[in-house]
Amino acid sequence: MADESVILCCFLWAVHGEESGLSHHEDSVLALVPEHSGTVLQRARSDGADGRPHEIQLFRFEGQAALDGYLQDPRRVALSGERDRVVARTELFPVSID
């Protein structure tokens, strides 16, 4: 049986002045990942200078259904107002890890 895991990279940019708010928000939502058969493989922060993202994350979920469950988790959805206040931009894309 083929590996059905989903590996994603996420770039996040904070609203100006909300860098700590972005980190706090991500602390909250990333805490839910393990409950959905997911793992945060890596989380890194930058200063955001020159248009770089403020935070970079790598995730692995056991499959698309696990990822969908995380994305639709009511606790995560309930934080969407906070997210809109502190996150200016997000890029999420699939990757492979060698």
Rank of each mutant, 00 (worst) to 15 (best):
R43A: 01
A2L: 10
L71W: 13
R83M: 01
P34N: 05
S46I: 05
Q57K: 08
Q64I: 15
E4K: 06
S5R: 12
S80V: 14
S20A: 09
V77S: 02
S5V: 11
A44R: 04
V87N: 04
G81W: 12
E4R: 11
S37Q: 11
V15Q: 05
H54G: 01
P74V: 02
D98K: 08
V95R: 00
P53N: 12
S46R: 11
G48M: 12
H16K: 13
T39Q: 08
V29H: 12
L41I: 15
F59Q: 06
G21N: 07
G48S: 10
S37K: 09
R52I: 01
M1P: 11
F61L: 06
E19W: 09
Q57N: 03
A66C: 02
I7N: 06
D73G: 03
D50T: 09
S46A: 08
L67T: 11
I97V: 12
R45K: 03
H16C: 08
S28H: 12
E62Y: 05
F93N: 06
Q64V: 15
Y70G: 01
L32V: 11
A49K: 15
D27A: 00
V6R: 04
E91S: 00
M1W: 05
S80P: 02
L71Q: 08
R45Q: 06
F93S: 06
G63M: 11
H25I: 15
D84M: 12
Q57Y: 02
A65N: 11
T39S: 03
S28Y: 03
D50E: 13
V33K: 00
L67D: 07
G69N: 09
F11W: 12
S20Q: 15
H25V: 12
L32W: 13
G38T: 06
C10G: 14
G69Q: 14
S37R: 09
G48K: 11
H16M: 09
G51Y: 12
S28A: 01
S20M: 13
R76E: 05
P53C: 11
L41E: 15
V29Q: 12
V33D: 00
E91C: 06
G48A: 03
R75S: 02
L22I: 10
R83V: 04
G69F: 06
H36C: 05
I97A: 00
Q72N: 10
G48P: 07
M1T: 14
F59H: 10
A78R: 14
E4P: 01
P74C: 00
V15Y: 05
D27N: 07
L22H: 06
L12V: 08
E55N: 04
D98C: 02
L32S: 02
L12T: 14
V15R: 06
G17S: 00
A49E: 15
A31M: 09
Q72K: 14
W13M: 12
P94L: 05
V15P: 03
L12R: 09
L32E: 05
P74E: 01
E62T: 14
D98H: 09
A66K: 14
L67K: 13
V86Y: 10
D73Q: 01
L8I: 14
L22P: 00
D50L: 07
D73V: 04
V6G: 00
